[in-house]
Each structure stands twice: as structure tokens, then as C-alpha cells.
Amino acid sequence: MGIATAALALSATACGKSSNDTGSSSTSGSKATKVAIAYDIGGRGDQSFNDAAYAGLKKAEDELGVKGSEAEPSQGESDADKVARLTSLARAGNNPVIGVGFSYAPAIAKVAKSFPKTTFGLIDDTSVTAPNIANLVFNEEQGSYLAGVAAAKTSKSGTVGFIGGVEVPLIKKFEAGFTQGVKDTNPKAKVLTQYLTQPPNFDGFSKPDLGKAAAQGQIDKGADVIYAAAGLAGSGSIEAAATAKKWAIGVDSDQYNQAGLSSYKDYILTSVTKNVSGSVFNLIKSVKDGKPESGEIRYGLATDGVGLADSNPAYKKMTDVIAAVDAAKKNIVDGKITVKTAP
């Protein structure tokens, strides 16, 4: 196989056609609109970030009748691989093409130039911009601030825990907001912070056992509310908290309603929702309606792009907590509180 490939590479590189020559670059409107999302590390099934993006795609398929494609990342890939993936999705006629995660930024910068008529969605990054790039960003720190308020008010021990999946700037936003929310509500409260892994090891977003061990450690130290911003690994933290009959706060989607976590739902106090699915759906709709979004599209508290879920009836009964949260929300929206984006 090696020899055949060598022959292939040496002889055909100069004259082979590009994979992007296949498929039509369709602009016709008679066929169903095609849209595509390219997932971040972990792909679909992470019970969190990528799944939220898929939810938006599915909603668009159901309500708008578009035809969706998904593409998973490869192991140890570089920007060149992402460029190839996005290019082939764009060439196949998908519009918009959405890159889920900041690691797609350099690739989208390149590909957007080659396909000016295609709209590209980039989630969690505003460093690369173009007329046909929509930067979908969220105020995770604001949602996390509210979680901090809820945690401080709910905690009986005065110690709460934060578990970050991987120590990257994005997750530090979650930490910063949460810590600020806790301290503003109860200055004497203690916040235990732990990151599961360091980059380039992104296992911290995908290994539940890591989250479970970390949560267990924090519970042993007296934490009775644990907020995990760790993708799939967070489900391990939720399991540990529920087993110890402590509170857990979910992230990205309303994890109270997630089938895979139903056995622990009673202990999921709330979740910091990040309306990734809404942002995906909105972008697809805007393209279909002929008015594609462009530039920075910010989803903050004011537009309910982030927020605290209140599906848990136990939470709904905590009127004083809800009052504090609502007050804090108002202060942030009114500009009276500025939430830090870095600890």
C-alpha cells in the first residue's frame, strides 16, 4: 500500500484534480438548502457543546426544511486539515458552514476568502472577521456569574467548587464569572478551583472519570455545590455530586433535561445555558431568509443568549435564590455590574 501511495503522490500531485472539484457549487433555490457544521474535539455525543450545535441543526432541519451535514475532527489534525474539511463542505454547496469552536478560526479565515458567497459561522471567536463570517460569541462569564450567585446562596457549608475541563482562556471565562458571582454574594465563601487537564491534552472535555474524581475531591474538602464547565467530563462531576447528595450545576445545555443524566437530575440545581443551538439555528435561518448574519453576534444575558435554567422544581422552590439571581441579572443587563472575563 505504501508503494502504491508513493506512486500516487509523486505522479498525481501536480495533475490530480482537487477534491473540491467534485460536487456542485449549487446556488439554486429549488433544491433544499444545504447547511453544514464541523465539530470541535470530541465530535457529536459530548452531552454538551457539540450536541448543542447539533440540536440547532436538527431544529433547522425540522422547521426550515434544510438538509444538514456534519463533519467530525480527526486525531492530531492541523489547520490544513480543517481548511480541507471546510473547503469541501463549502464546495458541496453548504451555506452556511459553521465551525464549532475557536480552533476553527485560522481555517475559516482562509476558506472564507475563497468562498465569498458562502456564509461561515465561527463559534467562540472574534479574532477573525470578514463580511461573510458571523462570529457567534457568548457571555459565558455572565451566565457563570448567576451560577455563582445561586451557588453562594444555596451552599450551606460556604464552600463551592468549580471544575474546568481544560485550562484554556475560554473556560477561564466561566471560572472568572462564577468566582465573582460567589464572592459578590457571600464574600466569606470559598471557591475551590480545579482544571482537569492542560492543553494540548483535551481529555478534560471528554473523560467523565476525571470529572468524577475531581468533584469527589472537592466534596471531600467541604464543597456542597459544584459547577463543572467540562463538556462530557462534567457528567462525571454531576454523578459524584448526586451520589454524595450535593448540588451540581450543569453547563452549555439544560442538563436537567438530558436523558443520559436523568438518574442524577434531582441534584442538578440549575445549568448555565449557552444558547449554542439557538445561535446555530438563527444563523441558518438568516441565510435561508436571504439576510445572512455577519460580524459579531453576541449572545449575552440581555438577549437570553446565556442564562440559568430553572427546570428543576427544587430550584423553583428556592424563591430567595431566584430573587438574588434575578436581581443580579438585572444589574448586569443594566450595566451596574461588569463581570470579569479572566480570573
Binding site: A9, T13, A14, K17, S18, S19, N20, T22, A84, T87
Partner: peptide
């Protein structure tokens, strides 16, 4: 693998 861009990647 027959496409030129994949070949460049390879």
C-alpha cells in the same frame, strides 16, 4: 487520495 489537495496533505 486521488485528489490533489489530499495528496498535498499526505
Amino acid at each position: 487520495a486521488g485528489y490533489s489537495d489530499v495528496q498535498v496533505l499526505i
